[in-house]
């Protein structure tokens, strides 16, 4: 295992490539093995990021810049997503609730689904599309134009300088974006209930207030922390393990968005289950 030095250094030290060396190539065709190799790669990147947090130079300015780009930059799309999702939830559920004469609870239904599920997941998916792709593209082109090598040659650890600030910024900003999406979703829902179905806005907001518990809010804030982490880690890993020139950069971007989105959705299920258990929510 001495041959491993970095999850991405100049092609050949790549862990995935280490596997290629250790095992005949045909084994690598096995998707399971490839998956394990990649998981190992990601874990190594994560480990190195955590270790680098303990001491040495930290790049606060870079982290702030990333937070600005991720947070402020993604605000419009996340707000729009939240607003229309809240709106469409009321649009679709109101007739059903009305059928059961529960239309006064439409606020509760939209609040629960938005804050527990749709707010965190949809914001994460939007951010993965906008920020995950940008990170993968940026790091990927830095790899193919040898800028990462140049950075290492100049004595800077790219993990410290590039990976840690991005992941930190995502972890900090995604919960805030999610809250913003939730609020706009509720506003969207209220507007639809009021203008399309003629419900009194006070009835709607009252039902929203009854529907949300502190636990829901906690659950809704814990998820985006994990999602931000997943998006950042996947995007940085895909970007740094880019090979094969400009086509490779395109591939990394696509892979990063697809992989991060899938992991967000899979993780969402398990997180939901874990939070249900830990916070004792989900039961009426």
């Amino acid at each position: 295992m001495a041959a491993i030095c970095l999850p991405f250094c100049a092609g050949r030290c790549n862990l995935t490539l280490f596997f290629k060396e250790a095992l005949p190539t045909r084994f690598l065709m096995n998707p399971l093995l490839r998956f394990i190799a990649e998981l190992q790669d990601v874990s190594l990147l994560l480990w190195r990021s955590i270790v680098s947090l303990r001491h040495g130079p930290r790049y606060f300015a870079e982290t702030l810049r990333q937070m600005d780009m991720i947070g402020v930059g993604s605000l419009p799309i996340v707000l729009l997503t939240g607003f229309f999702t809240g709106g469409v939830l009321v649009l679709q559920t109101y007739p059903t609730l009305e059928y059961y004469s529960l239309q006064n609870e439409s606020g509760r239904s939209v609040a629960t689904s938005l804050i527990r599920e749709l707010g965190p997941v949809l914001s994460a998916l939007m951010v993965s599309g906008r920020i995950g792709s940008a990170i993968a593209a940026e790091l990927g082109s830095m790899v193919v134009s040898q800028q990462i090598e140049a950075m290492r040659a100049l004595g800077t650890d790219p993990i410290r300088k590039l990976v840690v600030p991005r992941i930190t910024a995502l972890i900090m900003m995604l919960p805030l974006l999610t809250v913003a999406a939730d609020i706009f979703g509720l506003i969207g829902g209220g507007i639809v209930a009021n203008y399309i179905y003629g419900q009194d806005i006070h009835v709607f907001s009252e039902s929203v207030r009854n529907g949300i518990s502190t636990k829901d809010i906690i659950a809704g804030m814990v998820k985006p922390i994990f999602f931000g982490f997943i998006i950042g880690l996947v995007a940085c890993h895909k970007g740094l393990s880019t090979s094969g020139g400009t086509v490779g950069v395109g591939r990394s971007v696509t892979n990063s968005v697809v992989t991060a989105s899938i992991w967000v959705i899979i993780f969402d299920f398990f997180l939901a289950k874990a939070l249900q258990y830990l916070l004792d929510i989900g039961r009426i």
């Binding site: 030095c5 970095l6 190195r48 040495g56 134009s145 040898q146 800028q147 090598e149 140049a150 950075m151 290492r152 040659a153 100049l154 004595g155 800077t156 650890d157």
Partner: peptide, 23 residues
């Protein structure tokens, strides 16, 4: 490992064939 190499690299300067400037 990488942190130890960082110290060694402090005393070296490299001119890359393709420039490798931070664009």
């Amino acid at each position: 490992d990488e942190p130890a190499l960082m110290t060694v690299r402090q005393k070296m300067g490299m001119v890359f064939q393709e420039g490798a400037l931070f664009d």
